[in-house]
Amino acid sequence: MTGNECRVAEPAIRVESLTRDFGQTRAVDHVSFEVPMGSIFGFLGPNGAGKTTTINLLLGLLPPTSGRAAVLGFDTVEHPDEVRAHTGALLDDDGLYDQLTVEENLEFYGRVWHLPPQKLRTRIEELLTHLGLWERRTDRVGTWSRGMKRRLALNRALLHQPKVVFLDEPTSGLDVMAAADVREDLAGLASQAGVTIFLTTHNMVEAERLCDQIGVIRAGELVAVGDPDVLRSKTSPRVEVIGRGFTVEAQRRLVAHPGVVGTSIEDGRLIVDLAQSMNVAPLVQILVGAGAEVEEVNKSRASLEEAFITLMQEDAP
């Protein structure tokens, strides 16, 4: 397929057994996933796990060793130019020219994406006005703070209104308020403009709030993929019991129950790790039978961060 036609009926991103070696090192190892159109996909993993290499493969900047990937229906090996023409990217580096003005940076990339001059002017004004920075359009970018540059770089990636954007740590270096604004923008882009967002982040709260789907990569292998709830369910459920009299004997009796993995005391509260989600009434009976006083029982929901740590520790290489 050539030209400006996009295969919109297909997933925005389809990855099939994608593999990339650098010499003897396997950076990406048979990774497969799909990202539906208009969704936000969070790609999580520790440093060096293969996130950036995956983005480079998806943008057609690197050929895979084996496997294939398609973005908007364009094969990343056969039509890398089409992939880049229909996507936007904000990488780890802002990629802004410090010596050019804010307006010139946007104008350059507008020219790169063949935006007609009038449309480009309108678009630049629209984006900078949205950022509240229209009055500072003639500033040299080099005089701006890291946070302001990051927001400008994000808007540069969206300048040509791509259907898919790849964002590598989009809120890195931003203060709390600016990061919240960016998250709001990203959520709006996906829900209102139908833009598909592929983002990497180390911020689990951000991933939890924004992403419809999450993929976790470790040492080049995709160890989990699904919506955040599915990932959280991979962590052992736990119950928090508030009260008194959580003696060693009470805890021993609990552990003897087949559904209980272990117990611990944290800040005077009894934490009961379960093998799987279960009715907690029998556990309360055991505790009361052992002389404990139970005031409150909470089934706690594992955070994405806990799920992530669990995935990283499972059979770690």
Partner: peptide, 10 residues
């Protein structure tokens, strides 16, 4: 560090 972004363009 502006080259990588330039390379993501068409």
């Amino acid at each position: 560090r502006t080259l990588s972004t330039l390379l993501t363009s068409p």
